[in-house]
C-alpha cells in the first residue's frame, strides 16, 4: 500500500461510504415496504422523520461519492512517481490490472446512478407530498449496492497497490500497432483510416449536439425523443473514444505517435476540462431520460419539464463546449 494524502482521503471516503451504504441499502428496502402503509398518526410521523433523516444522510454521502471518480484518478496519478516504470496513470493501472479495469468501468456507472438519484430527490423535494418517495427508496437500495461494491473494490485495490511494483510504460500498451483503438478503424476503413478520425469525431458529436438543439428548439421532451437523444449520446462514446485515442488526443498533445488518454490531461492544460464537459454532456441526456421515466407524477409535471429542459441544455452546452475547446486546440495548435 502506498500511503499519501490521496490514499488517506480515498480510503476515508470509501470506508464511510461502505458503512453508510450498507445501512442505506437495508433501511431503504424497509422504508420502501413500509411507506404508505396505514398506521396511527404517531407511527406515520415517526416513519416520516426517519425517512427524511435517511434521505439527508444519503444525499450527503452520495454527493461525496460523486467526487470519488475524479479522486480515484488523482490517487492513481499520485502513485506514478512511486512505481518503477510508470510514467502516467496507465502504468499504475497495470498493477492488479483486472481490478483496476473493473473499477474504471464501475465508477462511471456509479457516477451516473448517484447523479440520477440526487436529481430525482431534488425533483421530489419541490413537491409538497413527496409522490416519488417509494421510487426513491427502491432506487436508493439499488444505488447503495453500487456504492457498496465500488467502495469495497476501491479499498481492496488501494491496499493491494505496492510501491515495490514494476510496470511497463504506457507506450507498450497504447502505441503498439496491434492496439484495439487502431485495429477497429483499420479493419473498417483500411490503412488510411487516420485521415478520417477527426472528421468522424466532428460528425459524431455534431449529430448528438444537433439533435439536442432540435429538441430544445421544438421543446420536445417526450420519452421517445429523450430515448433517441440518450442512444445517440451513448453511441457517441465509442466513436469519440476511438477518434480521441487515434488522432484527437495525439494532435492536441502535439505528440502524433502517442495514443495514451491518461497522458492527455498531463500534456494539455485544459484537457481535464475537455473530458469533464464531454462526460457531463453525455450523462445529462441520460439523466433527462431517467427523470422522465421515473419522475412522472401529476405533482411533478411542471417541475419535471423544467428539469428535463435544463438537463438537455446542460448536455448541449457540455458537448458543444468540449468540441469547441478541441477545435481551438486544433486551430491554434
Amino acid at each position: 500500500m502506498i500511503i499519501n494524502i490521496f490514499t488517506i482521503i480515498s480510503l476515508f471516503i470509501a470506508a464511510i461510504s461502505l458503512i453508510l451504504g450498507i445501512f442505506q441499502a437495508g433501511v431503504s428496502v424497509f422504508l420502501y415496504k413500509e411507506w404508505g402503509k396505514a398506521g396511527t398518526g404517531e407511527e406515520r410521523t415517526r416513519l416520516e422523520d426517519f425517512a427524511y433523516l435517511v434521505l439527508l444522510i444519503a444525499s450527503v454521502i452520495l454527493m461525496v461519492r460523486l467526487l470519488s471518480w475524479p479522486l480515484f484518478y488523482a490517487t492513481l496519478n499520485s502513485y506514478v512517481s512511486e512505481i518503477q516504470g510508470a510514467m502516467c496513470v496507465a502504468g499504475v493501472a497495470q498493477i492488479q490490472s483486472s481490478m483496476a479495469r473493473l473499477l474504471q468501468t464501475v465508477k462511471p456507472l456509479v457516477f451516473f446512478a448517484v447523479g440520477g438519484w440526487l436529481l430525482l430527490n431534488m425533483l421530489d423535494r419541490t413537491t409538497k407530498i413527496g409522490p416519488l418517495m417509494k421510487k426513491k427508496f427502491l432506487l436508493l437500495s439499488l444505488v447503495s449496492l453500487f456504492v457498496i461494491g465500488d467502495s469495497l473494490g476501491e479499498m481492496v485495490y488501494l491496499f493491494k497497490v505496492k510501491a515495490t511494483s514494476s510496470v511497463a510504460c504506457c507506450t507498450t500498451i497504447f502505441d503498439v500497432p496491434s492496439r484495439s483503438s487502431a485495429l477497429i478503424p483499420r479493419s473498417i476503413f483500411g490503412e488510411g483510416y487516420g485521415g478520417l478520425m477527426i472528421p468522424i469525431y466532428y460528425i459524431s458529436n455534431s449529430i448528438v449536439i444537433g439533435f439536442l438543439g432540435i429538441l430544445l428548439w421544438t421543446g420536445g421532451t417526450g420519452i421517445v425523443t429523450l430515448s433517441v437523444a440518450s442512444l445517440l449520446a451513448i453511441l457517441n462514446i465509442p466513436f469519440t473514444g476511438i477518434c480521441a485515442l487515434e488522432k484527437v488526443a495525439p494532435a492536441l498533445m502535439e505528440l502524433p505517435y502517442h495514443h495514451c488518454l491518461y497522458c492527455f490531461p498531463k500534456n494539455v492544460p485544459d484537457g481535464a476540462i475537455i473530458i469533464t464537459l464531454f462526460v457531463i454532456g453525455t450523462f445529462s441526456s441520460g439523466w433527462a431520460l431517467m427523470l422522465k421515466a421515473i419522475g412522472r407524477s401529476p405533482e411533478t409535471e411542471a417541475t419535471l419539464h423544467r428539469y428535463i429542459k435544463n438537463l438537455l441544455w446542460l448536455s448541449f452546452v457540455g458537448l458543444l463546449s468540449s468540441m469547441m475547446m478541441v477545435s481551438v486546440h486544433l486551430i491554434v495548435g
Partner: peptide, 14 residues
C-alpha cells in the same frame, strides 16, 4: 458558458 470555455481553451493552447 460556451464562449468562456472557448477562451479557456485559447489560454490553454498558449
Amino acid at each position: 458558458i460556451v464562449v468562456a470555455f472557448t477562451l479557456i481553451a485559447v489560454a490553454g493552447s498558449l
